[in-house]
Amino acid sequence: MERIIKVLNEINPTVNWEKETDLIGNRILDSLRIVQLVGALNDEFDIKITPMDVVPENFCSAEAIARLVGRLEDE
C-alpha cells in the first residue's frame, strides 16, 4: 500500500489518497491522470494494466488500486 500511495503522490501530492473513496466520481482521477497512473504503476510493479482494467471498481480508491496491482502481480 505504501508504494501505491507513493506513486499516487507523484501524480498529485495534494490529495489525501488514503481517505478518498470515489476517485473517479469526484474527478480526482480523470482520463489523463489514469494514463499517468497506469504508466507509473506498470513501471513500479512490472505489471501490464490493460484498457479492460480501467473500470471505476479498480480505480475508485487507493485500496482498490492496490487490489488490482496485487491481482496483476499474481497473474
Binding site: 482520463s31 494514463v35 497506469v38 504508466g39 506498470n42 494494466i49 484498457p51
Partner: peptide, 20 residues
Amino acid sequence: LKDYVFYPLSFSPAFMGLGR
C-alpha cells in the same frame, strides 16, 4: 472513443515506451 481508441493507444507498449 475513450474505451476503444484513447486508452488502448495510451497503454500500448509504443506509447508507454515513448513516455519513458
